[in-house]
């Protein structure tokens, strides 16, 4: 085995080592830079300015001050945005919200951060926690800075999507 072949082999080994590392980094790039966002079609983007006005008064009535608890809140209803009207059942598990595919509620639009917010249980009560998102989480149009208990039938807005906790 000549000196030159050995040199080429050991240099090749170092190169392969780095190829391995960059293969991993390439595979996890969506973790580092977030999911790629596609430009939303107009029909989807439209409800944002229009959707705000009608839903705000809708949130006002009935049981405003009652905090949502495990026993009285059974579902999460999307009240505005692309999937308006859809609902998911609440379990006793926390629900993560964000653009990341690992979130319990995935919202992919231009306003949502990868890990945006978390709906968690404080004892029996549901509370919303903003995970330092760029565009903020709004509970009844007030920006959430610390984990805040969520009343029943009160609008929580993230980007163009709003939802309420209901019986």
């Amino acid at each position: 085995m000549s000196e030159l072949t050995l040199f080429v082999l050991r240099f090749g080994f170092l190169l392969l080592l780095w190829v391995f590392i960059f293969a991993i980094v390439y595979a996890l790039r969506s973790d580092l830079f977030g999911q790629r966002v596609k430009r939303m079609p107009d029909s989807v983007a439209a409800p944002f300015p229009a959707g705000q006005a009608p839903t705000a008064p809708a949130a006002k009535p009935s049981g405003k001050s009652t905090i949502a608890t495990v026993s009285n809140a059974k579902r999460l209803v999307i009240t505005s945005g692309a999937k308006e009207g859809l609902e998911i059942e609440l379990t006793a598990e926390p629900l993560t919200i964000g653009r990341s595919a690992e979130s319990g509620l995935v919202i992919r639009d231009d306003y949502t951060s990868t890990h945006h917010a978390r709906l968690l249980l404080w004892g029996e009560e549901w509370a919303i926690q903003d995970l330092d998102s760029t565009n903020g989480t709004f509970l009844d149009e007030a920006r959430v800075t610390v984990p805040t208990p969520v009343p029943l039938n009160t609008r929580v807005r993230i980007g163009t999507t709003s939802f309420e906790l209901r019986r």
Partner: peptide, 12 residues
Amino acid sequence: TIRNQPRLVIGP
């Protein structure tokens, strides 16, 4: 355990 399946996906 952290890679839960999303329960609802909004958007593309």
